[in-house]
Design a protein around this nucleic acid. Structure first.
Lengths: 223, 223, 223, 223
DNA sequence: TATGAATGAGAGTTCATTCAT
DNA sequence: GATGAATGAACTCTCATTCAT
């Protein structure tokens, strides 16, 4: 039996009949997880500034002190969430584009599909990046830089692909790659926000397909 | 001679050779104008909650008290700006669509052209509506309703046009009109925000054309 | 009748039968005065850090907000008090030394007499400087510099006088002027604190005379 | 063989070739020692209130919990240090005065010499008593009493000596013994603090001699 | 012996708002 | 028409302390 599985069993055994974590490590992980999950929801529904540390703590059945014990500051809570965001949204998207090979059409395809998947599974993280970018824009805050960098990674990959596609004649010419890539990103971000704000009223499948077609038809070479 | 006219004459006399308004009415109008103009800029650059009444007042070379004298509350300043927003962005757009006749293609054309004009001339008002919608979303605030209603007027006109276009076969079918209209609005809003946040880096003409093409190609009937 | 007196009478007339200040200027002056007076007492009896803004405000029958309205921060309350301290203790002492002429014995005499007068009339301001110097020592705070500078003005004047006296043979030699001046300052500060902490038990006249003799006999030339 | 001895032998064996303590007793002693040493420095450099339990613990490479394990409270850390202070500063001084015989001049000599020695070797403990007296003065705290008592032992011995000296004609008359003793204590304390705050700038030997002469000349009988 | 998670009281500070002048 | 004094509620953050492990 492999040792990883064994240790999992040990832990499981220790925990029989309990739903509260017992070891300190588990406690820590559980508390951090609860705090981050609740903070994520609160930040995107209310905004960062409108969310109080007290609210975050209470949502996770803890006190303010616990938030500061784990994160030292409210800003650090957001930073921790942005780390996750980068890991769960930016990196998979860029990886998917890389994996798609060199053809710009394939890469754009990979971008759009990746965004659709994230939109279905990790919506909140992507939304966080978008909404916080707006909220912190022009603040001069350290977080602003963090957000700009995060979004720039995606935008750079996209712009590069657009450029290559224009050069190869696969994508429309006559419009700068910066502007074309920006409209794609704008559409992408706009759709996330629209989906979040009116999600209940919209059919996800239709909405995603419309988004996909907008991007593809929008960049297609003019004939 | 009635006293009202007399006092008007007095005021006119007083104002000879000055460029600062002196009559109470002018004073009033000038102060309100200054306050609203500065508040508009502050709300879109910093957000509503992050902007203090003190900042608004100081930007307009007045004191907090003046803000309360004219508007009774901070929320009212925003409401006044939303009144202007409706007048300057929503109404012209809807009027343009009405004026374009019954053909859905013409109407969509009118919508997109109107948005381009507003984007060039009244960017800040449109941005206010978009950014405040995000900031107040889910707040339960009275302002939320105001914003929802304001945006809904535009969206309803758009949805109706999309629907008619689909029925006539001019626009693509197979996707609900709600979803299609939402992606258009999402693209529209996304482009405003993108433009605002990266304006300096982008060529306006290219950006606007890309936006326009995205919308038209996106809604075009599939062949 | 001169206009200044007239306006004083006007104000007096306005205030007949009231003990609350009426004009805004008076209000402001009264509030600031109350706040500073109470803060002075609290800072020297409890220390700066142990004194809360709430306490200062309540002592002056105001709220915390008023403290921030006038001083912007707790640190500024102390800074305002240090301005007064410099004006009421350091400057008179240095002025007295200057006025005493060039003879070092006269100058030292002036220093000691001035300190006795201050000890009798402005004890609290002098104590503030001494106690805050100890509390902020090594803090790296901006206030630390302010305090060091303030005390240095007195110490420099004293050291210079000591030096001249040593050179003229009026004061003892064989000990550096720095060290001699420091022991004088130490005795001076020590007496202020001792007086403050045990004031009730001590006869002021005897205590002051003993202090004076300590200084004069201590610096006297060895025969 | 009794088990206690056995375990001692075991411990001795365990420790061969190490310089880190290993037995529980040694560990305990080492931890307590580290904690107290670091706390002493922190209390005099930052003050008691400005020093956090966390800082004390980290300085000693331990955690907050350890401080509470050994001392039960922050106040107890200070109390333990005050016990040491009494033992290392008050008692030697009083013992030296007793040992000097009955002559008040010899006793005062013993006091001054003892303070010079302490000033050179145990400065920090003496400073702790002086600075904490100021910080806790008027706090109503239990520690205030402890400090008052501690200082009073020294001051009483000094006052008694002064009194005897005045009665025998060796010391100046015309000033109450309380006042004279207080000025001596004030000079003493003042010099400790001055030395601590400006130590780097001053020559210890000169400073100590000036202090000594101040006291002797200050109490000398007037001729 | 000592740790690390967590608490809760209270600190300094900000800000929308009120009101007498 | 507009100011400036003042409030009070809420916010971020700190810290001595407790306790299960």
């Amino acid at each position: 039996m492999d040792t990883h599985l064994q240790s999992s069993l040990d832990q499981a055994t220790e925990n029989i009949g309990r739903d509260r974590p017992t070891t300190k490590r588990e406690q820590r992980a559980a508390s951090i997880e609860a705090l981050l999950t609740k903070a994520l929801t609160l930040f995107i529904t209310q905004g960062y500034h409108a969310t109080t540390v007290e609210e975050i703590a209470q949502s996770a059945d803890l006190t303010k002190g616990a938030v500061y014990f784990y994160f030292k500051s409210k800003a650090n809570v957001l930073k921790a969430l942005l780390d996750r965001t980068e890991e769960l949204t930016v990196e998979p998207t860029i990886a998917a584009m890389e994996a798609a090979g060199k053809d710009p059409v394939d890469r754009l395809n990979a971008f759009v599909r990746s965004q659709s998947v994230i939109g279905a599974e990790k919506t909140e993280y992507m939304l966080l990046a978008i909404l916080m970018s707006a909220e912190f824009n022009g603040s001069g805050d350290e977080i602003e830089t963090r957000l700009t960098d995060l979004m720039a990674r995606m935008e750079n990959a996209l712009r590069e692909t657009v450029k290559v596609g224009q050069e190869s004649g696969a994508f429309r010419n006559g419009i700068g790659p910066d502007e074309l890539a920006s409209v794609i990103m704008a559409t992408n971000k706009g759709c996330y926000v629209e989906w979040y704000m009116r999600g209940g009223d919209l059919k996800g499948h239709d909405f995603a397909r419309a988004f996909r077609d907008f991007v593809f038809d929008g960049v297609a070479a003019r004939t």
